[in-house]
C-alpha cells in the first residue's frame, strides 16, 4: 500500500487545499511501493519550497536541503552509497534558478539520480513570483506587466549532453505520470521528470482559474501524448525522450 510509505500521522500536510503537490506525492509513493522501494533502500532529497516539504512526509530517510542544493547533496549521497535509490523532488524555481548551475553540471556528469521537478511555473512558497519556467507574458506578483522573457527550455538543457532522460508529464495524466516516474527510477543515469502541476493559491487564481479542478482540466485539454519514439517533445506534448 502506498500509504505505508507516508507518515500519515503528519497529515494534513502543509500544502494548500487542492495543491497539485499532494498528487505528486501519492503517485511517487504508489510507484515506490510497486517497485519495492522503502526505507532500507531509498532516500528522498529535496530543495526548499512547497514541493520540498514532501521529503518529510515519506517513511524513508528524507533530506530537506538548502534552497537549490538538493542535487549536490543527492549526488554525493549516491556516490557514497551506490546501492541507495536517490530520488530528488523539488520545485522548478529551486532546481532551475538558484540550483541551475548544479542542474547543468549534474546532468552533464550523469549520476544515477531520479529528479522529479514540480513545474508549477512560479515560486509557490514565497507567494507566486515569476521564475525561469514562467511562460512569457504571464502576470505574477513580480511581473505585473507580464513575464518579459522566454522560459528556460528544460528539454534542450537536458539534451545538451550525450546521454539523457527527459520526461514531461502532468498531474492530470496519472497513468502516464506514474509510468514516467517508474521509467525514471529504472533509468541508470540522470533522469529528469518535468511535471506540469498547479499552484492554485499563488498562481492559478491570478491567471483566472477558479479552482484546482479547472487547472487539472486545463492540463487535460492542453497536453497531448507525443507519438511513440519521438526524439523531441513539441510544446504541450507529454512523453519521454532518452538516450543511453
Amino acid at each position: 500500500m502506498f500509504k505505508d510509505l507516508l507518515k500519515m500521522e503528519l497529515f494534513p500536510t502543509s500544502w494548500c487545499p487542492g495543491c497539485g503537490i499532494g498528487q505528486v506525492m501519492i503517485q511517487l509513493a504508489t510507484v515506490m511501493d510497486e517497485m519495492g522501494l522503502g526505507h532500507t533502500n531509498s532516500t528522498i532529497i529535496s530543495g526548499v519550497g512547497c514541493t520540498g516539504r514532501m521529503a518529510g512526509y515519506f517513511n524513508v530517510d528524507g533530506v530537506y536541503t538548502l534552497h537549490g542544493r538538493a542535487l549536490p547533496v543527492a549526488e554525493a549521497a549516491k556516490l557514497v552509497n551506490p546501492d541507495l535509490k536517490v530520488i530528488v523532488v523539488s520545485g522548478d524555481g529551486d532546481l532551475t534558478s538558484i540550483g541551475g548551475n548544479h542542474l547543468l553540471h549534474a546532468a552533464r556528469r550523469n549520476p544515477d539520480l531520479t529528479v522529479l521537478c514540480n513545474s508549477n511555473q512560479v515560486y509557490g512558497l514565497t507567494g507566486g513570483q515569476a521564475g525561469p519556467t514562467t511562460p512569457r507574458d504571464t502576470r505574477t506578483v513580480s511581473t505585473p506587466g507580464g513575464a518579459p522573457y522566454d522560459p528556460v527550455n528544460l528539454q534542450n538543457l537536458m539534451k545538451a549532453g550525450g546521454r539523457y532522460f527527459y520526461a514531461r508529464t502532468t498531474v492530470f495524466h496519472q497513468v502516464h505520470f506514474r509510468n514516467c516516474i517508474k521509467e525514471a527510477i529504472a533509468w541508470p543515469g540522470f533522469a529528469f521528470v518535468d511535471i506540469m502541476c498547479h499552484c492554485i493559491e499563488n498562481n492559478g487564481r491570478r491567471l483566472g482559474f477558479k479552482s484546482a479542478y479547472e487547472m487539472l482540466q486545463h492540463f487535460r485539454q492542453t497536453y497531448k501524448r507525443a507519438t511513440d519514439g519521438a526524439e523531441t517533445l513539441e510544446p504541450f506534448e507529454i512523453g519521454i525522450v532518452r538516450k543511453g
Binding site: 532529497i45 530517510d61 533530506v63 536541503t65 538548502l66 537549490g68 542544493r69 542535487l71 549536490p72 547533496v73 543527492a74 549526488e75 554525493a76 549521497a77 549516491k78 556516490l79 557514497v80 552509497n81 541507495l84 548551475n101 548544479h102 547543468l104 553540471h105
Partner: peptide, 26 residues
C-alpha cells in the same frame, strides 16, 4: 575514497553534507 570536483563551492559545501549523511567522513 570518493572524490567530486564540484562546479563551485556552493556545491562542494553541500556535497560534503550529503556524503556525511550517506555515511562518509567527508
Amino acid at each position: 575514497f570518493k572524490f567530486i570536483q564540484s562546479e563551485d563551492e556552493l556545491a562542494a559545501g553541500n556535497a560534503i553534507i550529503g556524503a556525511s549523511l550517506a555515511g562518509a567522513k567527508s
